[in-house]
């Protein structure tokens, strides 16, 4: 069971959990704004690159 869960985690989350967290946060904020009838299409295009930059910086290590 542990091996199965680990395989699912590696399949979905991959090398950097930060990207999966970023996707969850971006879509979560989008859903909250949309539920309040506020334009929300811009949230993911703004937040996803921010998390991608953070993930690349993490991979490059401390400067």
């Amino acid at each position: 069971m542990t091996a199965f869960l680990r395989a699912v985690w590696e399949f979905v989350v991959g090398d950097d959990w930060l990207l999966a967290l970023g996707v969850t946060i971006a879509l979560g904020i989008t859903a909250l704004l949309a539920a309040a009838d506020i334009a929300a299409w811009w949230v993911a295009p703004v937040l996803i690159p921010v998390f991608l930059v953070a993930s690349i910086r993490r991979a490059l290590g401390p400067r």
């Binding site: 950097d16 999966a20 996707v23 879509l27 998390f51």
Partner: peptide
């Protein structure tokens, strides 16, 4: 959409690091 985005970002991250010579 969420899963495609996670997969796509993983591919993109690796491609960026490889193109930059960091991987």
């Amino acid at each position: 959409g969420g899963l495609l985005l996670v997969f796509g970002l993983q591919w993109l991250r690796k491609a960026i690091l490889r193109a930059a010579g960091a991987k």
